[in-house]
C-alpha cells in the first residue's frame, strides 16, 4: 500500500512536469513562429561594402573558397590597360604570367575588336582573393567583384567568412534573390 502511494506520487510529478514541458515547448515554438519566414536564407556579399581584404580566400570552410569573382560585363569598359588583370608595374600589356595580377591566372583575356578586350573568370581556378576586384575598383569601373557561389557554398549556419569580414559585407539574403550582383539589383533579396 505504502509502495503504491509513492509510485503514484512520482508518476504524478513526472506527468505534470511533462505537461509543463509540452506547454513550454509549444510556447517557444509559437513565439518562434512569430518571427519566422517561409523563405530559406543564404549568405551573400554586398559588393559595395566589400573592402577586398582577401579573407574570403582564407576563411571559407571550403578549400578553395565558395566565394568567386564574377564579372558584371555591362559595367566593364573592356579596356586594354586593365587594372584588374595586369599587375601594377607590368612589363608588357600581355597575357604573360608575370604581368597578371591574378595569382592563379583565373582571368582569361580575349581580344574582341580594336581596342576592346573581354575579361572572363575561370571559376575553377578562382580562389576569391579579391586582388582583381580591388584593382578593378581602384583603376577601372569596378565590374569585377566577389559573390558567394551557391552551387559551392554549403550554407553554414554561421558563415566563417562573415565572422571574419572586417567591413561587415556578408549577410543573409533570401534564397529567392541569392545574388547581389553589381549592375543588377532586380532580385528582392534583403539584408537582415
Amino acid at each position: 500500500m505504502e509502495r503504491k502511494k509513492t509510485k503514484s506520487r512520482r508518476e504524478f510529478i513526472i506527468s505534470s512536469m511533462r505537461f509543463g514541458m509540452v506547454l513550454s515547448l509549444g510556447g517557444v515554438g509559437g513565439l518562434a513562429f512569430r518571427n519566422s519566414t517561409k523563405e530559406q536564407w543564404v549568405w551573400q556579399i554586398d559588393p559595395f561594402k566589400c573592402s577586398w581584404c582577401g579573407r574570403c580566400a582564407t576563411h571559407c570552410v571550403l578549400n578553395p573558397s565558395a566565394v568567386k569573382c564574377v564579372h558584371a560585363y555591362e559595367l566593364c569598359g573592356y579596356c586594354d590597360l586593365c587594372g584588374g588583370y595586369l599587375i601594377p608595374g607590368h612589363s608588357a600589356r600581355s597575357t604573360a604570367a608575370e604581368n597578371q595580377l591574378c595569382p592563379t591566372a583565373a582571368i582569361e583575356r580575349k581580344f574582341i575588336e580594336e581596342p576592346y578586350y573581354e575579361y572572363k573568370i575561370n571559376e575553377d581556378l578562382c580562389i576569391g582573393c579579391a586582388k582583381c576586384a580591388e584593382g578593378c575598383s581602384a583603376f577601372g569601373n569596378g565590374s569585377l567583384h566577389l559573390q558567394v557561389m551557391h552551387h559551392l557554398c554549403v550554407n553554414c549556419n554561421e558563415c566563417a567568412i562573415a565572422r571574419a569580414c572586417p567591413s561587415d559585407a556578408i549577410s543573409r539574403v533570401k534564397a529567392s534573390g541569392p545574388y547581389l550582383m553589381k549592375g543588377d539589383f532586380t532580385s528582392d533579396g534583403g539584408e537582415t
Partner: peptide, 16 residues
C-alpha cells in the same frame, strides 16, 4: 561594339 559582340551571361548558379 561594331562586331556584334554580345555580353556573355554572368554565372549565378541557384542555391538548393
Amino acid at each position: 561594339f561594331e562586331s556584334g559582340y554580345e555580353y556573355p551571361e554572368v554565372a549565378a548558379p541557384e542555391p538548393r
